[in-house]
Design a protein around this nucleic acid. Structure first.
Lengths: 187, 187
DNA sequence: CATAAAACTAACCAATCGGTTAGATAAGTA
DNA sequence: TACTTATCTAACCGATTGGTTAGTTTTATG
């Protein structure tokens, strides 16, 4: 009945995600997105509504790509060693794709301010909360710890993770390793 | 012999710094800067050459404002407790001015990529290096530690500090406190 | 008081921003 | 094959970007 799309939305959104990941939301222009995604502005707006809409889909795409890390963490029976493995796995993940990009969610959290789009803030809060809960859940299983200590250490670990995300963008591998080893000396 | 400036450069650069601090480099426009600094674009360019030049002066201004923190750290005889105090002092400093702005240097490090202005990258590297050396120097004074351990722990602390800087932008006070307490459990 | 030099205002610049739209093109269906 | 409908290209939109410049105002000095 009508012409068919010459592109696959999942494919082009991943290309957009990689561009946002490398450059951040503001610095990435529609012009750059057209070029990277290989489609016209018209098609981008037809599929995603706005730059913000495309960015939200890119965030979802990113979270899909790192879901395997979170699954490994949540299904781990290694206790705190499993959390440590998550830290190392994350570094490896950022190096696999292209060194120095950090975590798209953390990068976004660092970029935005209070007046930013509510949905974006919501996605960031949800993701951060989910990782923190995974940490807390593993800590809780360690029966030598009471709930107050679990909460304190979960706060510590989620902020330590935020620091690691930023640090992968401008610290050397050996420094990241020294960092992680010391993070897990204290718990 | 000639007309005199109606503004003080140190005064207006501090206003610019506060705007950059709140919004980041890219998001802060010349229009916003004109309004905040209370002077015309012409005067900004006459005094600072470019947006980049103004930003570099803003970075210097910021570093001047937090120099007292670094002085306190470097002149401390509290050992590791002095480093811990630096972490808490930093939080207090970010709250004094306006909550949720983090550290301008860290914010900038998070915003830029490899292609950014060389001088800006240099200032960030110098400042980060200076703080790291202050940490290392204090750790070294503790004669129970060998040099390898000092380097490892200095890496840990400087990345922990980067994490704290970001975290002050979107974590609650109690979580920051839990974080710092745990950071210093491990060393 | 006249003059020279710097500081000011405000209009202006090309380029780019996110976003829209008119018209050409393609394809499933009647 | 004709028609309908969605997708495509490409020109276009007003607003804003960082930056410049012509011309007016101020002021210390000769």
């Amino acid at each position: 009945m009508a012409r068919q799309k010459a592109y696959n939305e999942e494919v082009v959104v991943e290309k957009a995600m990689n561009l946002f990941w490398r450059n951040g939301f503001e610095t990435t222009s529609m012009q750059m997105l057209e070029k990277e995604m290989g489609i016209n502005k018209f098609s981008i707006y037809a599929s995603f509504g706005s730059k913000n809409g495309l960015f939200l889909e890119s965030l979802k795409c990113y979270m899909g790509k790192i879901k395997f890390l979170l699954n490994t963490l949540e299904n781990s029976d290694l206790g705190i060693a499993g959390i440590k493995k998550y830290f190392y796995d994350f570094i490896e993940f950022t190096r696999e794709t292209d060194f120095g990009k950090g975590c798209l969610v953390t990068n976004t959290a660092n970029e935005i301010n209070d007046e930013a789009d509510e949905k974006i803030k919501q996605v960031i809060g949800q993701f951060t909360g989910q990782v923190r809960e995974a940490f807390a859940s593993i800590l809780k299983r360690d029966d030598t710890k009471d709930q107050v200590l679990v909460d304190q250490q979960a706060d510590y670990l989620i902020i330590a993770m935020v620091g690691l995300s930023s640090a992968t963008r401008f610290f050397a591998q050996s420094q990241l390793d020294n960092y992680i080893e010391n993070v897990f000396n204290s718990i």
